[in-house]
């Protein structure tokens, strides 16, 4: 992945603060949940460096709510693999927002547009975002680098609430990747 040439904004395009990659994964049959099998299921969809390149990829993707089965989109900064073990993530954590079925596509779009537009105002802290399509709910997660930095995680939570415009009783939980590794479950 790191050997790929980095994308560059084309003439007249609007550059993003960071380059990004979109990944897709679908849970394989069987019950193995090792990090190796997770890694194997990650498929790189594309990379982009500008607003226009983002739309060029995103517009061709199936909307999250129209996917079936147990699958995830991951949108991460270029160079960060969407895995707990990546060096950018291993001291980090994520905000988790559980959504009723039907809200996933709209909330995912609002989340990633805020991330690409640098609306979180937490410097280099944001690593990436995930939407997980599950049988009874859709789950958004926003990953950051430093789980122990409470000022940053609180600011991310407040911005998330604002940009997702969710009902006030929506439950948000923060989980460190270290805890996810220990209990070997993501949510």
């Amino acid at each position: 992945f790191k050997l790929r040439p980095s994308p560059r904004p084309g003439p007249g395009e609007h550059p993003l603060q960071f380059n990004y990659a979109i990944w897709f994964s679908r849970k394989s049959q069987g019950k193995t949940s090792s990090s190796a099998s997770y890694d194997q299921n990650l498929k790189l969809v594309g990379t982009f460096a500008s607003v226009e390149q983002f739309w060029g990829i995103y517009s061709h993707l199936v909307r999250p709510s129209d996917l079936s089965g147990h699958c995830d989109y991951h949108l991460f900064k270029e160079g960060i693999r969407p895995m707990w073990e990546d060096s950018a993530n291993n001291k980090g954590g994520k905000w988790i927002v559980r959504l009723k079925k039907g809200l996933g596509s709209r909330c995912w779009e609002n989340l990633i547009l805020a991330m690409l537009g640098e609306q979180f105002m937490v410097g280099e802290e944001i690593c990436g975002a995930v939407i997980s399509i599950r049988y009874q709910e859709d789950i958004l997660a926003l990953w950051n680098r430093t789980a122990c930095d409470q000022v940053t995680t609180s600011r991310i939570r407040d911005t998330l609430k604002r940009i997702l415009n969710l009902p006030p009783n929506t439950i948000m939980e923060y989980k460190t990747h270290n805890d996810s590794i220990k209990d070997n479950s993501s949510f």
Binding site: G12, V51, E52, W55, G56, S59, L113, A114, L116, G117
Partner: peptide, 21 residues
């Protein structure tokens, strides 16, 4: 360097730009 911020509405406008393929 300078930070590149974009508001949601601006990003949505770019979706319809002729540069977006």
């Amino acid at each position: 360097g300078t930070k590149i911020f974009y508001e949601r509405n601006f990003l949505m406008q770019c979706r319809n730009s002729p540069l977006t393929r």
